[in-house]
Design a binder for these strands. Sequence first.
DNA 1: ACATTAAAAGTAAACCATACTTTTATATAT
DNA 2: ATATATAAAAGTATGGTTTACTTTTAATGT
Lengths: 223, 223
Amino acid sequence: MVLESYNNQEKYLVSIDCAIFGYHEGELKLLLFQREKEPEKGKWSLIGGWVNPDESAETAATRVLQRITGLRDIFLEQVSAFSEPTRDPGGRVISIVFYALIVIDENRMKLSSEFGAEWWPVKSLPTLIFDHQQMFEMSLERLRQKATYHLVGRELLPETFTITQLRSLYNSIFSKDFDPGNFRKKVLSFGVLDRLDTKDTSVSKKGAFYYKFNEQKLNESAD
Amino acid sequence: MVLESYNNQEKYLVSIDCAIFGYHEGELKLLLFQREKEPEKGKWSLIGGWVNPDESAETAATRVLQRITGLRDIFLEQVSAFSEPTRDPGGRVISIVFYALIVIDENRMKLSSEFGAEWWPVKSLPTLIFDHQQMFEMSLERLRQKATYHLVGRELLPETFTITQLRSLYNSIFSKDFDPGNFRKKVLSFGVLDRLDTKDTSVSKKGAFYYKFNEQKLNESAD
DNA sequence: ACATTAAAAGTAAACCATACTTTTATATAT
DNA sequence: ATATATAAAAGTATGGTTTACTTTTAATGT
C-alpha cells in the first residue's frame, strides 16, 4: 500500500505457522504441538512463532523450524496468509502459513519431545485448534501439487532409497495406490535419479536397487 | 501462533495489494495507479489499501476493489504475503497480494481516472514501485495456472462472446497462439458453454456463434 | 535344484494433443 | 442470380503419453 498515510493505522501481530511433513514407517506424518495452557488446553496445533522486526515471514519460519528440528536447509514454501479478525481468540493475529518437508531421522533430529511435539499420521490427526485444520488441508493440497510436477523424495526420504520406497511415499501423499510398473517408468523418466550398485534385499529375494538424487540433473531440470 | 505471550510482541502495518486484470481490445491489461507523492512520485503501483481491524485481508481487498471499480462480486484469489522488512521504505508493512479478474465495461465501471488509475497492457508495463513488479509476475503466473484448469472467460469477457474471442483472450494470457481448431475442441470439451442462436458477423462473412457460460454446469464441474 | 518373491521389463489398447485439411455458411462483388 | 472471398466449424491423421496388465528376471531360502 502506498497512497495513504502510515500513521493512524491499526497494527497487528503477525505470526507464522508451519505444517511440517515427514515420512516414517510408510506413512506421511505431520509434526504437531500439544497446547499446555487454556484456552484450548490439550488440543494440538501446528508449529508457530512470531515474525520479528528484522525478519521476513520466510526467515521467521526458517528460524522456528531450525529451533524445533535442529535442521538447516529445510524445504519450505508459503501456502497462504490467514487473516480472519477472529481467527485467534487471544487477539488479532495474522498468520502466514508455510509447509515444510523434512527427513525424519532420529539421530540427526533434535528430540522434538522437548518441545512437546509429536508426529501424527495425516490420516488420523487429532483435533486442531483455531483454523489449523484448514491450514493443514491447504498445505497438503500444495504438497500434492508440488509432488505432481517434481519428485519430492529428496526432501522426505533418506539419501538412498528404492523405487518402491519412493512409490509408497507417493501412495501416502495421494492416498492411492500407484501401479508399480508405471510409477517406475514415470519416475525414471524425470531423469534425476542415479541407480547405485547396492540393493535392498530386506523385502525381496531379488533385491531392489538403491537410488539417489543427482543434484546436478536436479538443478538443470529445476522448474 | 499459540504458545508464547501476545504482549511484548512487535506489531506491524498490514496492507493488501491487488493485481487487477482486465481484457480490452484483444489485450490482457493491468490496472495501475500513478503515485502522486514522493518518494517514488510518478511511478506506478498496484492498487492497495489497509486491512482494517474488522476485516480479513480478503474483505479488505474486496472493499478496495469495489471502491475503485464500483463492481461487486469480483473474482479474487490470494497470491502470497510479501513481508521483507525493508520492502516498503515508508515503514514496516506486510502486504498480502491478490489478483482479481474483471470485465472491462466502461458503462458499468466507475471511471477509474478519478483515482488516477489506468489500464496498461501487461506486455508493456511501466516501472513499478517497491516489489510490485514481482507481485505482478506472481499474479500472472497464478492466473495462467487458473486458466489452465478452468475457463476464465466468464470473469474477463462480456456475457456473450465467440470462441474466437475466448481464444484471443487465452492467446494474450499465455503470450502464444493457440490453434483455432484444437482450441475450440478443447474448450467445448469442458462442457460449460452454451451456444446461442445469434452470430457475430462483424469479423467473418460466415459469422461466429455467440456462446455464454452455463452457470449450472459451471457449478457442477467446479474444482 | 527348485519354489518363491518382488523387482524390472515389456506390451497392447485407450486416450489425448497437435498439426493440418476440408467443408460450410454467408456477405459482398460481379 | 451467380461467383468469390472469408473465416468459422468440422474432420482427419499422426505421434506421444497413460493405463492396465503380462512376462521375465534375479536372488534367496528351503
